[in-house]
Simulated assay, not measured.
Amino acid sequence: MITISAFQWVPPFAQGVVRDLRVRWALEEAGLPYQVRLIDPQVQASSEYRALQPFGQVPIYQEGNLTLFESGAIVHHIASRSEVLLPTDEEGKARATMWMFAALNSIEIYFQNLAEIDFFYPGQEWGKQHRPDVVKMIQTRLGELATCLGSREYLEDRFTAGDLLMSTVLRILRHTDLLDGYPTLKAYKARCEARPAFQRALASQMEPFQQRQA
Rank of each mutant, 00 (worst) to 15 (best):
I2M: 14
A6G: 14
Q8S: 14
P12V: 01
G16R: 01
A30C: 03
G31T: 08
Y34K: 08
V36A: 06
R37P: 01
I39P: 04
P41L: 14
V43K: 10
S47Y: 07
S47K: 14
A51K: 14
A51Q: 14
V58T: 13
E63P: 09
L66W: 05
L68Q: 06
S71Q: 07
G72S: 05
A73R: 01
H76M: 14
D89F: 10
D89M: 11
E90N: 12
M98S: 12
F101Q: 12
L104T: 04
F111I: 10
E116N: 15
Y121F: 15
K136Y: 04
I138S: 08
T140D: 12
L142G: 11
G143Q: 12
E144F: 11
L145I: 09
L145H: 08
A146G: 12
A146S: 15
L149I: 08
L149K: 07
L155N: 05
F159W: 07
F159S: 01
L165H: 03
L165Y: 01
S167Y: 04
T168R: 02
T168W: 00
L170C: 09
L170V: 07
R171S: 15
L173V: 04
T176W: 09
T176Y: 07
D180C: 10
G181I: 03
Y182K: 03
L185I: 03
Y188Q: 00
C192W: 00
L202Q: 08
E207V: 06
Q210E: 15
Q210P: 02
Q213P: 02
